[in-house]
Design a protein around this nucleic acid. Structure first.
Lengths: 158, 158
DNA sequence: TATTGTTATACTCTATAACTATA
DNA sequence: TATAGTTATAGAGTATAACAATA
């Protein structure tokens, strides 16, 4: 119930223990800072880049599907798409079969910018994972997908 | 340069690719939601619990050291400590050798609550990692520490 | 009635800057 | 002067609620 270590004995011992949640939080925080900085050099926020990336990889989704894919609230996605559209990087099309649906599409300008930022971000991400085997990075991705509760395991997550 | 998949062919294919940053962000978001819910059942925010946990594991740190250990800004740590002190879970002592320094100490009540919440949070965390070998979880922790840029590798991080 | 997109709003986390008290 | 803590404040990210258009 008392200090497991006499005060002032071996000095401060900053060992964080099991708290996986907090470790994930801090790792994500740090990676967001690094890749966000890269994206902003090109005039994009991290989320705007993520949206462009999803539009590139999974074209044809409507806004609701896109939000679920990215784990973004529909109102958060709105503000991203608004700015991207104002910048001419995205256009919202209408789905003729259901006129409620709107399908965001990346423009040529958007695709060019996305490709540039993707290269820079990939560099940052890989350098942040220096010292880890490629196998381990694959394990990391598997675990993150498992935590998110992802598509390939048990259907949609959020 | 165009859609890698003809529009409307095989339907939406929501595969997120290399974006480790975003995967980390979403995984952390989900874990924070889960453990935060647990903590709030006991009247604590996740950050308040994290602070209590650090005070338990690394007693004797002053506020500056504590903030660095947890990766919390000193002003953020302040608000956590204020509420913990008001609730009688923490007391701030003075360091007689340097009267600028204040050393937060967990009280008996704080320790009892921390232990309760720790059990509940550990359960949530382990169940979130179901389907992963214990070895893999160790790999995960190593990688997270590497990303954070931690003590055991290259000195303090933030 | 239910659903998609939209708008407006409030709340939380985090960081910045200025102030104090000690050194 | 420099540092630890404190306070006040502003910004970003996120979620909630209400509304319009369409099904």
């Amino acid at each position: 119930m008392q200090s497991p270590q006499p005060p002032g004995a071996a000095g401060p011992r900053p060992t964080v223990d099991s708290e996986i949640t907090w470790l994930l939080h801090r790792a994500a925080q740090r990676m967001r800072a690094a890749t966000g900085e890269v994206a902003e050099k090109h005039g994009l926020t991290l989320r705007e880049y993520i949206v462009l990336s999803a539009l590139h990889k999974s074209p044809g989704l409507n806004q609701g599907e896109l939000g679920k894919t990215l784990g973004l609230d529909k109102t958060t996605l709105m503000s991203q798409l608004d700015r991207l559209e104002r910048s001419g990087l995205v256009v919202r099309h209408n789905d003729p079969r259901d006129r409620r649906l709107r399908i965001p599409v990346i423009t040529a300008d958007g695709e060019a910018l996305r490709a540039t930022v993707a290269d820079a971000c990939d560099n940052v991400e890989t350098s942040a994972l220096t010292g880890l085997d490629p196998d381990e990075v694959q394990i990391l991705r598997r675990m993150l997908f498992a935590i998110i509760g992802d598509v390939e395991d048990r259907g949609s997550c959020l």
